[in-house]
Design a protein around this nucleic acid. Structure first.
Length: 322
DNA sequence: CGGATTTGACCAAA
DNA sequence: TTTGGTCAAATCCG
């Protein structure tokens, strides 16, 4: 599970890099002769803050792991560890991982986005995050008015990608969906081929998924369809490094999708590393860290579109050597 | 016919 | 025991 470990480090570095890149962009904007939109500047600042908050979270997570895990031979506690919840379906394929660690799922990283879906003609627009998901369950939640839908990566079986997400309509605002992502995609980005699923939302708040109707992605936590991202958002691609390309793709989404029939309002993002922050990183501390993110403006910026998954992908030319 | 969704059942954590 | 998460058979759909 060396790759899991690398994921944390890469995620940390990638967040710092993203912060750096955005800071540079902000600097360029500020130093340019042209007038700078105050909203743009604010958005860039928020992205910088977000990146560093995430980086801090990773650092704190690593601290907690090192305290809980003195020996490397004990259970791998990476936030990206493969779900070891007993799975009948995958019992054969996951022979190396299914060692009945019931707490494994709690180690999966979890973060929440609030996606606002614009309603047109009484029908809610598609909610597409650029990844390929397969619905595997729906559940009525006791305290919630609308059912919660469960999705997993389409490539779970073929590529062993264990990323999942939960989608639930907000009670306060029907146009907002709480999407909780859990785990990271281990499949290669170009494994996901668009057109991916475009969930539509039925009147009762449950979800159905169609395979047509390609639209701009709203978020990037999942199996990214890289080619389409290039097609839709070709700007800001840095060099040929896939790592930086990923960063630039995600950071350019909002600027290139003003006409999108829906928009994303990342009203907040929660980072939750279940079970690993109990002692060294209490919830209150987490809340404090996240608070910067929660102040994200109404600006439809893809602030959180940087894919944590991206760093889980092998980057043979990764410029940093930890 | 193969892949995706639906949905009741099952399981485990709280 | 309750409840959320997942399984898997049935069903749908292109």
């Amino acid at each position: 599970m060396e790759s899991d470990r690398n994921w944390e480090q890469n995620a940390l570095i990638s967040e710092l890099i993203q912060g750096l890149e955005v800071a540079r962009k902000l600097k360029e904007d500020l130093s340019s002769a042209s007038s700078v939109d105050a909203r743009d500047s604010h958005s860039l600042l928020q992205r910088i803050l977000s990146s560093y908050d995430k980086a801090l979270l990773f650092l704190r997570w690593n601290e907690s792991v090192s305290m809980q895990q003195p020996t490397k031979t004990s259970s791998p506690q990476s936030p990206l560890s493969i779900d070891k919840t007993p799975l009948r379906e995958d019992a054969e394929e996951d022979h190396q991982e299914l060692k009945h660690n019931s707490k494994k799922r709690k180690m999966m990283p979890k973060w929440t986005e609030h996606i606002r879906v614009k309603i047109e003609n009484g029908v809610e627009g598609p909610l597409e995050d650029g990844y390929s998901w397969r619905k595997y369950g729906q559940k009525d939640i006791l305290s919630a008015k609308y059912p919660r839908s469960y999705y997993r990566c389409t490539f779970r079986k073929t590529k062993g990608c264990f990323a999942t997400k939960q989608v639930q309509r907000s009670e306060e605002d029907h146009t907002i969906f709480d999407i909780t992502y859990r785990g990271s995609h281990t499949c290669k980005r170009n494994d996901a081929v668009l057109p991916p699923k475009s969930p539509d939302y039925t009147q009762d708040g449950s979800l159905t998924v169609k395979t047509d109707n390609i639209t701009a992605p709203s978020a990037s936590f999942g199996c990214m369809a890289q080619d389409n991202y290039h097609d839709l958002f070709p700007s800001l691609v840095l060099e040929n490094d896939p790592f930086f390309s990923t960063l630039s793709q995600t950071s350019s989404l909002s600027a290139n999708t003003p006409e999108s029939n829906y928009f994303v309002s990342p009203t907040f993002l929660e980072h939750e590393f279940d079970g690993v922050c109990n002692k060294p990183c209490p919830d209150s501390e987490l809340a404090r860290l996240v608070s910067a993110d929660t102040s994200i403006t109404s600006s439809p910026i893809f602030d959180f579109n940087f894919s944590l998954d991206a760093v889980g992908i092998d980057y043979p030319n990764f410029p940093f050597n930890i």
